[in-house]
Design a protein around this nucleic acid. Structure first.
Length: 121
DNA sequence: ATTCTGACGTGGG
DNA sequence: CCCCACGCCAGAA
């Protein structure tokens, strides 16, 4: 098989990212890497960002609760108004200083630990 | 077809 | 602390 093999589109990946993000509790945040890791593609954190970029028209997807490993609001420029990401987090009681979530240790929600994976059958 | 750029993360110097 | 290379892979140029 050559590299041009038409692998089936990763609609699945996208859907799974959406699923997880929708599960992030109010007032908590998670990271791109944590989500990727939860999906079994630990090194595909960038793809998580790619997926989130396609959720702009999905109000049910709290994309503002996804930050990078350091708690940095790296995706803020992709929201309607600059600062809106921080604003939404603030509403939930998450403190952001210098585009960085404070107390990551406390507000971090790890999908791997919280999600009970369904049996494979 | 090839190159480059990301809403990333890890590892090495 | 800073800088860089790599792996990941979709899209744009």
């Amino acid at each position: 098989m050559l590299s041009t093999t038409p692998r089936h589109p990763n609609i699945n990946f996208f859907e799974q990212v959406v699923q997880i993000v929708k599960l992030i509790p109010y007032g908590r945040v998670t990271t791109y890497g944590a989500i990727a890791n939860c999906l079994g593609s630990k090194q595909s954190a960038r793809m998580v960002g790619w997926a989130l970029n396609h959720t702009h028209k999905m109000p049910e997807v709290p994309a503002h609760r996804v930050v990078n490993r350091q708690g940095n609001l790296t995706g803020k420029h992709h929201f309607e108004h600059t600062g809106s990401m921080q604003a939404q987090l603030a509403v939930e009681g998450i403190v952001v200083k210098d585009d960085q979530v404070q107390d990551m240790r406390k507000v971090f929600w790890d999908p791997e630990k919280e999600i009970i994976k369904a049996p494979t059958w």
